[in-house]
Design a protein around this nucleic acid. Sequence first.
DNA 1: GCCGTTTTCGGCCCGACTGTTTTCAGTCG
Length: 575
Amino acid sequence: MTNKELADTFTLIADLLEIKGEVIYKILAYRKAADSLTNLSRNAEDIWKEGKLIEIPGVGKAIAEKIDELLRTGELEFLNKLSAEVPESLATLLQIPDLGPKKVKLFWENLGITTLAELEKAARFDQLANLPGMGEKSQEKVLAGIEALQRRQTDRTPLGDVWPFAEEQLAFLRSLPGVVRAEPAGSLRRMRDTVGDLDILAAADDSEPIMEAFVNQPNIARVEGRGPTKTSVEFSNGFRAQLWVHPKEKFGTALQYATGSKDHNVKIRAIALDQGYSLSEHALTKEDGTEILCDTEEKVYQTIGLPFIPPELREDRGEVQAAKSGTLPELITLDDIIADLHTHSDWSDGRATMREMIQAAIQKGRTVLAITDHSASLGIGNGLSIERLMQQKEALKPLREEFAGQITLLHGTEMEIKADGTLDFPDEILAQLDIVVASLHVSMRQPREQVTERMLNAINNPHVDIIGHPTNRLLPDRAGADLDMEAVFQAAKENGTALEINANPQRLDLNDIHARRAIELGIPLTIDTDAHAPAHFDLLHFGVATARRAWAQKENVLNTWPVEKLLAWLNNRGQ
DNA sequence: GCCGTTTTCGGCCCGACTGTTTTCAGTCG
């Protein structure tokens, strides 16, 4: 049983207990345990074998016993009893935006509603509006929420959710005899922030055993189509995938074809035609019928007279024209990044001590690290008061000395841009910090004018260096604040304030489009992990990919600057 | 249900917004 399956079990228990009306702290304990299991760097099953479950944060005697029962028997008596009391399908209703445990319980007890379909029917037949605490607007909200949920279920999955699964599949394919290459394609390879179907390409001379092994994996729910070159499946986790198998001589054309985007390929095929070739996934074919096979994409582009175009650019956003005229950008790479300027420790809501975060950053090759814990008004994030902020500053001093020569440490804050538009710390406090990230977290639904005003107020403060995850969107379906982005960009340009590409795959905020606009205007960008635990430093590549999709070059991004240049930039601000 | 550098019991989860109310319950981040 995987960590995720264990975590899902405890999340389900928490949901059902919440609907039942259990004391909130018990529910929070289950959620914390689920969160902890999800973010565990090791297999819970291995820890179980060592008898050390209790050492997992948030796992005490009771939950350790439940994990033990699950790993031994695959079942949990406690959950069986609970779901006899509270139908499991009610947990699904909690997924509906603006619907929580109290309302779900209300509908269930008064109308016997246990499923999404029953709830939708009741709302359409006007049966919800008369319940206590409900009304017309609340009933409409339920319907709107159901629609939003259904859109989400049929829509795209965040890149970060698909990524680990795609890596597993690629590793599986590469392990098969006869497979000489396996690569992601489609929007996954282009690193779009969300992915529809998983497109995977393998190179092998005989496709049959590859397809056979692929569809016989234990986690396949359905085989939608099966042929010698293409097979489509749905996995039991809900992901759908297409696997193409081509001989390695054709791998270049096949990969170019499968990577897309469609619009990019239309342009590329037109250029091929101009050069006297018909381009397909199999070959470049001359008018006399002779075929040129390409084992690499480089050869495909080279044959039609173009330089290689990185997958992240292939969206038909001017990259074909730039390739023709030799003006493709020299894109930033993961190796260019030396600094992380937005991270958390257990002083606020991080899961690790400052020392652990520093050691992890060093281990990941960073040479500059900013610790930017939340500020006081974000109560849920255990935000720092001025007093605690100053204590933290002192606590960091010996660490600066201890790790001097290995990493440059910056003391900062992720400061709340509060609902009323003011900032959480006064200027004289901000002046004492090495770096200030300002972010929106609350009152996201304010009208455009109001929320934009809040943001501009932060950007215009000379002590604010970086705006963290500017729109505060969450993938896949929480839209960000309704900001007037152009006003935000103009203010950032005037003040020289940096805008962040938050590398957490739930965020990727700024998105590629906004980041590209910022680069056009000469606004400095940062790429930060917003790490709340050591493992989160590994999320950096998602942020770099988003920057690449925004045509970012090394010099556009503060995190690549030599430390002297970065410190000079920070010192010049706030004056 | 978990946790503890005085604690094995008593904290832990705060504040804004919405829609329902006529002072507040529910939801969300």
